[in-house]
Write a protein that binds this DNA or RNA. Sequence first.
DNA 1: TTGTAATAGTTGTTTTTGTAACTAACAAGG
DNA 2: CCTTGTTAGTTACAAAAACAACTATTACAA
Lengths: 155, 155
Amino acid sequence: MTTPENDTFDLQDFLPYLLNQAAEVSSLEFQQVYKDRYGMLRTEWRVLFHLGLYGSMTAVEIGTAAKMHKTKISRAVHRLAERRFLTRSRDESDRRVEHLGLTARGQAAYKDLREVARTYDETLSGQFDPADLETLRKALRLLAQMPPVDKAKGP
Amino acid sequence: MTTPENDTFDLQDFLPYLLNQAAEVSSLEFQQVYKDRYGMLRTEWRVLFHLGLYGSMTAVEIGTAAKMHKTKISRAVHRLAERRFLTRSRDESDRRVEHLGLTARGQAAYKDLREVARTYDETLSGQFDPADLETLRKALRLLAQMPPVDKAKGP
DNA sequence: TTGTAATAGTTGTTTTTGTAACTAACAAGG
DNA sequence: CCTTGTTAGTTACAAAAACAACTATTACAA
């Protein structure tokens, strides 16, 4: 590592980079739990949590809420159903849609993981001054809500 | 979407989740640029930036600084060298290590992307009150620095 | 020396993800 | 009714990431 240059750009302050680093580190410990304890992937615990929190939902609803692509959901749902964490039932009036819901097993896993998440979040949050924590959460929510840049062209 | 439950857990406030959402959204626009303009992957622009910022480095040094696994670096370096963005040279005194450095082409790409990053970061930053921004960055740095949980067991 | 452990970096194989194309069901205008 | 367009969800294939095992080189202590 030699010849530092400058032109005043600090990678450590570049928000996308910084956010990724923080997200990665802070996800690790929780990932360990849902992976080791239930063999789940990130997409799967997210689906599980949405169903645990909001009750019955369709894949599209989960996709919208969690900003996940439908193929991710499809696969996560498939694996969760396979392992009896959730059940799928066709809508009678519109047979394209499926209503998803947790089984007792899914509920149990959700409740367990929810406690782990709560505890872990308290550990993380505890490192901050309450006012700063609120600022942090507010900022992250704002960033997460930013409209995706439209890739289409021409008028 | 029916029967909301509660037990007071809000997914939207769970830091690992929130951080991932923010990171993902805020990375998209920049990704578009390095991908479309130089055909790079995330690992590749990171290596490029480290070399652009700090001059000559070895793979291990980059790995430490960027918290990337050495196989990621190895492959990123391979692709960058292949496309003539960087050069590799064996260390004479320790022939295991390789010193990496940007070519003129790599420098140019770096400078270009650095400007894009700077501009984009200003856009993002501009959404916040300066004090809040500082709080945000400080918090993210703290989270990013958290020690990884030791997976080993027993005393 | 020499044999054991450590380090730098690479390669092979398996999982996950991304992307696009696909099927099935519905909607709505003619 | 038909055709055309849209939506829910799946599947196939390509790209990328994760993980483990590997080679080559150095360190260092018996």
